[in-house]
């Protein structure tokens, strides 16, 4: 456990000096709204609620809601 923690911490600190392989000026496509995992939070939250209210599984969805509304 401890060696793994040390390795992760070193990786973390090393990360501060990593040269990004995709430069900021090369990210125009990634910044396009169609590349967002959740472009419209209200609509995504609703469809996530539709699934969670009717499925045994829960969590790790694109967005999350609350309450029950599932009788």
């Amino acid at each position: 456990m401890r060696p793994l923690f040390i390795i992760l911490s070193l990786l973390w600190l090393a990360g501060c000096s990593i040269e990004p392989w995709v430069k900021p000026y090369e990210r125009a496509h990634l910044a396009d709204p169609i590349m967002s995992f959740s472009r419209d939070p209200v609509a995504d939250s609703y469809i996530n609620h539709v699934h969670e209210a009717r499925e045994g599984a829960r969590g790790a969805g694109v967005a999350s809601g609350g309450g029950c509304g599932c009788n």
Partner: peptide, 18 residues
Amino acid sequence: VSQILSKNSLLGFTFDTI
């Protein structure tokens, strides 16, 4: 975790414990 893989690709990983 959200990761830029290349100029055209993104990877997302989510883990939830409830």
